[in-house]
């Protein structure tokens, strides 16, 4: 049902945890639908120096969260904003069709975290 890459990221997720005093935080989903993803950023000089996640959800939700942190780490904010949910799924060699919508929200969480950071900068 899941690709080897999904199972790899599910079994050994990258960047799990939280960042104390994060530059930005983004959360998507809700417990009713069974998925919550939370992403923490440490931004320095417009670059994502560190990124962590916490996820409540199925195998696909955990794997996409892990993958998006790997894709975003070290990128500029503009580059990171280009990451789409579809690109995350592709990097995992695909997701089962029924998971494409419900559990593939990691890029949205990343986007929210970046926006959270940016909103703090303009204040």
């Amino acid at each position: 049902m899941y690709t080897e890459k999904v199972m790899d990221h599910f079994t050994n997720p990258r960047n799990v945890g939280e960042i104390t005093e994060p530059s930005g935080v983004g959360e998507v989903g809700n417990p009713t639908c069974g998925d919550i993803m939370k992403i923490f950023l440490k931004v320095e000089d417009n670059i994502i120096k560190d990124i962590k996640f916490k996820t409540f959800g199925c195998g696909a939700a955990i794997a996409t969260s892990s993958m998006v942190t790997e894709m975003a780490k070290g990128k500029t904010l503009d580059e990171a904003l280009q990451i789409s949910n579809k690109a995350v799924a592709e990097m995992l060699d695909g997701l089962p069709p029924q998971k494409m919508h419900c559990s593939n929200l990691a890029a949205d969480a990343l986007k929210k975290a970046i926006e959270d950071y940016q909103s703090k900068q303009t204040v």
Binding site: Y2, M7, F10, T11, G34, D35, F56, G57, C58, G59, A61, I62
Partner: peptide
Amino acid sequence: EFIEGEALLLSLDL
């Protein structure tokens, strides 16, 4: 609580 069932099943299956 705090865990989603499919993630639990996959982990047990492993």
